[in-house]
Design a protein around this nucleic acid. Structure first.
Lengths: 131, 131
DNA sequence: CTCAGATATGTTATATTGTTACAATATTGA
DNA sequence: TCAATATTGTAACAATATAACATATCTGAG
């Protein structure tokens, strides 16, 4: 399916991530799109850049991997900071949003004159199934 | 100087990071320790593994870099979640701790049965000097 | 002391992640 | 139509990290 306004490569990458339902590295995506004509990492990274900029995909910094947004219909970022709980056992990623967190951080950092642009919150641990 | 209980390589890496006063990539550390006999990345990564495990050094996931703990005297982790404000302009890193944040996250995730093991909080933005 | 186990270090090669530079193609609108 | 723009293709490379194995050093039991 894939959201509107995406180019062919962007749609391919987005579909692959959405179908996977979990995080994939750029090179996993590349390997999975060989049959669709993908040959070089740049094809993946360029698509990811756009998808991340649009909030359709998130980068997991502690994993160097990418995951489809859990609710691409709403503009991600409009409902508080985006955070991820990542299970170290099964690899499942749970995306959530937390206004309190965002307010706390803004208040704390605002007092120091720091202007946040992008906030990374990733909690690594064990999910309910693996605990 | 360097804390007690460190081996030669660990002390060299720790001193280098402490002296730098800011984040360094593993390969920057390697290059800076050539004169001390460092030849291969593994020498750096092994030292970093120990230093990070001991809480003397933190890894900045969004930067793939490492920084000396701002207060190695106290065991890091005993005073709330460790977080970093990272200036996108000057590269300065401000380490801070926030109990509220930690409680919020624990409460929120605990309700979902998720057991946190390590939490990454990195706020990228502009510091007071660069804003 | 001494020597065996454990720890730390050294070295080479390789895997993984990400970017630069440039060429070709496709799209769009005046 | 055709020129400007956006997108895609390709090759080479840079940066980050680990695997596998060899050597050296340290430490404690005998």
């Amino acid at each position: 399916m894939s959201a509107a306004g995406l180019t062919k490569n962007q749609a391919l990458v987005f579909d692959k991530l959405t179908t996977a339902g979990g995080p994939m590295s750029a090179y996993q995506i590349l390997d999975n799109l060989r049959d669709d004509g993908f040959r070089a990492p740049l094809q993946v990274y360029r698509a990811l850049d756009k998808l991340v900029a649009d909030g359709l995909v998130h980068k997991l910094e502690s994993l160097n991997a990418f995951v489809a947004c859990a609710h691409p219909e709403e503009k991600c970022g409009s409902h508080g900071l985006t955070a991820f709980a990542i299970c170290n056992s099964c690899g499942n990623v749970f995306e959530f949003h937390h206004h309190g967190l965002e307010h706390d951080l803004e208040h704390f950092l605002g007092a120091k004159g720091f202007k946040p642009e992008k906030t990374v919150v990733e909690i690594r641990g064990k999910c309910a199934n693996c605990a």
